[in-house]
Design a protein around this nucleic acid. Structure first.
Lengths: 155, 155
DNA sequence: TGACAACATGTGTTATAACACTCATATTCG
DNA sequence: CGAATATGAGTGTTATAACACATGTTGTCA
């Protein structure tokens, strides 16, 4: 039998409420899964946030995106997207140019090297996702996804 | 209708697999909820990790716990529990003493000030949990908790 | 038009996370 | 016994996160 959360973190007292237990379950699950995903990405010199930013820029295509748009699309909020992009620019995965009508905007675009890196990563990312969550049936995954959506969005 | 995750992060392409969508849903939900909880705790001068460490020490009682035991019980893994405890010691919420048989161990204990702070926080934490997740029925919360447990523990 | 607000980005600084390494104590086993 | 190994804790350093503030650009409206 798999350990309960209470056993995992060796907590003596039972949880005060289902809400509390759900909060801790979500945090614990995210920590475990993100740690595993982070270890995989680290071998390629990327953090999870950097990887997500690259994915966003790949989705944006040749037009690129400005800093705040990238920041708002990231899975977890970062207060300093400037230096996140600085690092991606330093490693040659992203370029930034100030162009177009409104000279306040700085467009970031993924480089061919960035696209190539993502292409190399795609199968490994898919395999990691399967390894981490493939033991759940499609139905359970769908239920989980739906419940998490409800959790994030109070009606 | 609440936005789907795809809308939330303005992703064009659909997800490649349910596993991928679940990974992102978990990460997104944890980020949203932890941000809200962190904002609440910040008003009291604590980070989430510091709060969790205090909760662990309160549960341990007068015996206290050694550093590695605290580290292993934390919700999310921290590689530097020493300085986490340093900070709690600096603010007077925790004491550390080297005693007992094995002089390698350093026991950390929560102070009366730490207990008092937690007691003040208890109702606010419970209210925050209700505010963030109280819109889900008890049955849905239980299903969510169980599915997350399955997700963390491949059979 | 010209002051002012809003916006997009970047910079400076401090705190924390992350990682490699050292030190001290305890245990194991030839 | 005594060298080697294991364990627990702490330190030094670099990278990143987090926060307040500054700069330049655009839109608004008296």
């Amino acid at each position: 039998m798999p350990p309960t959360l209470q056993e995992e973190i060796r907590q003596r007292k039972p949880f005060g409420s289902a809400e509390e237990e759900a909060m801790l379950s979500i945090a614990r699950t995210a920590a475990v899964l993100e740690h595993a995903a982070g270890e995989m990405l680290k071998k390629h010199g990327l953090t999870i946030t950097q990887y997500n930013a690259l994915r966003i820029l790949r989705g944006a295509g040749a037009e690129g995106l400005c800093r705040n748009e990238i920041r708002d699309r990231l899975i977890s909020r970062v207060p300093d997207a400037t230096r996140l992009l600085d690092r991606l620019e330093d490693t040659g995965l992203v370029t930034r140019t100030r162009e177009g009508e409104d000279r306040r905007f700085v467009l970031s675009r993924i480089t061919p090297a960035g696209l190539e890196l993502l292409a190399r990563l795609d199968p490994e990312v898919a395999a990691t996702n399967r390894r981490l969550l493939g033991h759940l049936s499609q139905g359970k995954l769908r239920t989980l996804i739906d419940l998490l959506g409800e959790a994030r969005n109070p009606a």
